[in-house]
Amino acid sequence: MAEDSVKSEAPAQQKNENGENKSSQKAVSSNGEAENQTLSKRQRKKLLKQQKWEDERELRKQRRKERKQQRRLQRQDDEGGDGQSFRKRPRREVTPSSLRMVVDCSFDDLMLIKDVRKLHKQIQRCYAENRRALHPVQFYLTSLGGQLKQSMDEKDKGWVNWKDISIKTEHYSEVVAKEDLVYLTSDSPNVLEELDQKKAYVIGGLVDHNHHKGITFERAKELGIEHAQLPLSSFIKMNSRKVLAVNHVFEIILAYLEKGSWQEAFVTVLPQRKGAVAVDQDGTNAQEKEEEDSDSDSEPDATEQLEKRA
């Protein structure tokens, strides 16, 4: 009986030409059909599209290579065949300045993390602008630590490789001699007329949204160091407070070193939302004055008109 049962099971275990069990093949086939039946029309279309994309990968790669070659040949034709790329703009002759700019990062505990991240972006902008400036300054970042360092480590790990910058954990008063320091603060009664190349100008690294008014001025007085404000009122009329972002102050100094004009520096750097308008030395709006001069030139006054009629 046992032998008969083995023989009866043998046909069920017959294999096909590929050595696969027929019964298992049928099961796989039925599973495949079941899977196809469970896919929606959209899913099947998506799979076909994906398969087509994969099949054409090499073709796309070849086309990109051909287009790149064509652009290279076109550039050589435009340049007269000398092979030099006209995309590289001639680098301006850079003359480093001996002036020092310090961003004071000792206000870390007074800011929320969102404000610290804004300060981080402003410092990134200062670094980038100084690297491309015609007269780059000696850039110092002091009192680095706490939330700011954490943000820099998380968002910009490459900061440890920054060039042409001195990054210190110490306070700026421990890095630069006090007699060389000038704190730039809008609350100072002193107006900065000229830049002294021997000085180190400090910018408060604080994004406070008016929560800590006058704190940089008070810190400067406590340390007994010089302080001054940029001559905004003498050259610019604004529709907002004179408190500027760290990168704006930094960029204004760089622009002044290049242009030699406070007014040009302010107009070039300050964003339109600040409503900055150039004014003459007598305090009048330069734009309005031009319009008035234009009106007076085009329309003679009433006395002249009466004389002509007479």
Rank of each mutant, 00 (worst) to 15 (best):
A2P: 01
P11L: 15
K15D: 07
N18F: 09
N21D: 15
S23N: 13
Q25F: 04
K26N: 13
A27W: 10
N31F: 09
Q37T: 03
K41Y: 00
Q43K: 10
L47S: 10
L48G: 12
K49Q: 14
E54D: 12
R63D: 10
R63G: 05
R63L: 13
E66A: 14
R72P: 01
L73F: 12
G80N: 14
D82P: 01
M101V: 13
V102G: 01
C105K: 01
L110Y: 08
V116Y: 06
C126Y: 02
Y127Q: 11
A133W: 01
H135Y: 05
G146F: 10
Q147V: 00
S151F: 04
M152Q: 10
V160Y: 08
D164S: 15
I165D: 06
I165W: 02
A177Q: 11
E179Q: 10
L181Q: 09
L184R: 02
Q197F: 05
A200E: 05
A200M: 05
G204A: 06
G204Q: 05
V207N: 02
V207A: 02
D208C: 06
D208V: 01
T216M: 06
G224T: 07
I225S: 08
E226H: 14
P231Q: 13
L232D: 04
S234M: 10
K237P: 00
K237F: 04
K242A: 10
A245L: 05
H248I: 09
V249M: 09
F250A: 06
I252K: 02
A265R: 00
T268P: 00
P271F: 10
G275L: 01
D280K: 02
Q281A: 12
G283I: 07
A286G: 00
E290L: 13
E292S: 09
D293V: 03
D295V: 11
S296G: 02
D301C: 14
D301G: 15
A302L: 13
A302Q: 13
E304W: 10
E307Q: 11
K308D: 10
